[in-house]
Structures are given as structure tokens and as C-alpha cells.
Amino acid sequence: MGVDRREFLKIAGYATLFGLGGTAAIDILAPGELEASATGIPLTRGKRWAMVIDMRKCLAQQDKKKCKDCMVACHREHNVPDWGEPQHAVKWIWQDKYEHVFPDHPNEFVDEGVEGRPFILMCNHCYNPPCVRVCPTQATFKREDGIVVMDMHRCIGCRFCMAACPYGSRSFNWGDPRKAPKSLNPDYPTNKAYPERSKGVVEKCNFCTELVDKGELPICVQACDKIKVNALHFGDLANPESNVRKLLRDHYSVRRKPALGTGPNVFYII
């Protein structure tokens, strides 16, 4: 690199002096190296976050038990109210059968391995999100790291985004979450870390920005890793050496309704 210890400390010192932090020095001296060395570890510096769902592992786990760990963890993390009514359900991560998840792949003679099997669904954090395009208040927007987020305090509840989303990934608070049945929400709202929403706003999966910003993995990934199933992989598509890019290089993957040009960033290995 042609930088001796003395020079490194000098630059790092200046960088710190200017409030750039230690990583800035590495960026100046050896651009890209930190990212490469941190492959697979989520940092706060992703450019295009994505999820790769290894359905082989997920379904193998489903065979053992009706596993809902990722969903339970997510809905607890984000204070998601349960109304007990499917038509008013608020869904961040949920399951539906293969045929419903991929309705544009109709096959009369479908593989037994996937026929009628429960697939994991969440917001696709599209590269070209139609929900963002239609929102009249910019209450939903795409962050620089590719995560499509929702400002539940700005949303006026027009539900244009729900009409625009081709994936059914957006949920509306049809009622006041505090009035959701107590039996289903025994300790609502318990989680002070995540804002409680009002009635009449739209919400959806946020790829756990609150955790990613702290350098942690999304809670669904954590829940899946905790039981050592490791079906969910979160990483940066912009980095050719990332875990997700490696998985997509090594396996055939599909996305939901890719022909619509939304550029879903959730991939399924089947």
C-alpha cells in the first residue's frame, strides 16, 4: 500500500479530527477494503439491501414444525397489531402458498416440493417502487441504501400505495391499534423502541431500518439464524462479494412478478 504506520496514524488522526471517524481513514487509504473484509456483516453502509430466501431450508424446517419464528419476531419487534380478521390483517412478513405467491408462474403440473407449500412473503423493497411513485405526500420513500420505508406520521391514509403495490405488501390500519382485541394483543403496546401508529395509516416491512442503522441484522433473519435454519440472508447487492451476491451467483433464484419492472429485491431460491 505504500503507507507506513506513522503516515497511517497521521491520516487517521486528521480524519478523526475532522469528525470522520476511523473508517474514513481506511476509505482514504484503501478504498473498498473494509467493505470486502466485512462481507456478510451488515453495516450501516449498504447501497442496495436485499433478502435472499432459501426456501429449501425454510420448507425443510416447515416439515419439522409449523415454524413461524420470523413472523412472530417481526410482529413483536414492530408492535404490529393483530385484529384476528384476515381482511383487516396488518402483515409485515407472512406466509402464503406457492401458487398465490407466484401467480404469474402458473403450472398445471407443478413440482410436488412446492405445490401448496407456504412461502415467506414480505415487502420486496423494489428498486423501482410503484408505491413511492404514487404517494402524494412522500410518506413512503426509498432510502439511499435501497430500503423502501414508510413515515407513518406523515401518511394521510389515501391508500394509493396499496393500489399501486402489485405484491399486497402494504397494510392499512383499518382501526385504532389500541382497540385491537386484548386477547390477541395482551401487552400492546409494549415495545417502546418502535413507534405506535395511529389508525388510518399504511405500514409495511421496513427491512428493520431501526436495526440496520445500528449495524444489526433484520429481526426475521436473527430469528431464523437463532434456530440455526439460516434460510434468510440479508446483504448488499451493490457489493459483488456480499453474501447475497454469492448466493445468487451459485443458485438459480426467482422473484415475484419481475415482468412488471419494479425490480424486487427479495429473491427466492427454490
Binding site: 402524494p136 405526500t137 412522500q138 401518511c155 389515501c158 391508500r159 395509516v201 399504511v202
Partner: peptide, 15 residues
């Protein structure tokens, strides 16, 4: 509208 009191957001944040 789910949140009619926020109607003016359409003018405050023209899109």
C-alpha cells in the same frame, strides 16, 4: 382518507 386531519400534507409536501 384514513387520516383526514393530515390532508394539508398534500400541499405541505407537494409531490
Amino acid at each position: 382518507l384514513g387520516n383526514p386531519v393530515r390532508l394539508m400534507n398534500m400541499i405541505l409536501y407537494p409531490t
